[in-house]
Simulated assay, not measured.
Amino acid sequence: MVRLSSRCTVAIHALTLLARSGDGQLQSSGEIADSLSSNPVAVRRLLGQLRDAGLVVSVEGHGGGWRLARPARRISLRDAYLAVEEGPVLPGYAHPPSEMCVVGRNMHAVLDEEFEQAERAMLDRLARTTIATMLARVLERERA
Rank of each mutant, 00 (worst) to 15 (best):
M1S: 15
V2S: 11
S5R: 05
S5Q: 04
S6L: 14
C8S: 15
C8E: 00
C8F: 14
T9D: 05
T9W: 10
V10S: 15
V10W: 02
I12C: 12
H13K: 15
T16K: 13
L18Q: 01
L18C: 09
R20G: 08
S21P: 06
G22F: 04
D23I: 13
Q25Y: 03
Q27P: 01
S28F: 01
S29L: 09
S29H: 13
S29E: 07
G30Y: 07
S35L: 06
S37L: 08
S38R: 15
P40M: 05
V41Q: 05
V43H: 05
R45Q: 11
R45L: 13
R45I: 13
L46H: 02
L47Y: 08
L50S: 06
L50H: 03
R51V: 05
R51F: 01
D52F: 10
A53C: 04
A53V: 04
A53S: 10
G54I: 03
V57T: 09
S58Y: 05
V59E: 08
E60K: 10
G61R: 08
G64T: 08
G65V: 04
R67L: 08
R67P: 00
L68D: 02
L68Q: 09
R70V: 06
I75Y: 03
S76E: 01
L77K: 01
R78F: 05
A80R: 02
Y81R: 06
Y81H: 15
L82E: 15
L82P: 02
A83V: 01
V84T: 02
V84H: 04
E85Y: 05
E86I: 08
G87T: 13
P88R: 12
L90W: 00
G92H: 12
H95E: 11
P97E: 10
E99H: 12
V102G: 07
V103C: 12
G104A: 14
G104I: 08
R105M: 09
N106I: 01
N106G: 04
M107N: 09
M107F: 09
H108C: 09
A109D: 02
A109G: 04
L111P: 00
L111Y: 08
E114T: 07
E116D: 14
A121N: 08
M122I: 14
M122D: 06
M122G: 10
R125M: 13
R125G: 11
R125E: 09
R125N: 12
L126H: 09
L126R: 12
L126Q: 13
R128L: 05
T129A: 11
T130K: 03
A132E: 14
T133K: 14
M134W: 01
M134T: 07
R137A: 14
R137P: 00
V138W: 01
L139I: 02
L139F: 01
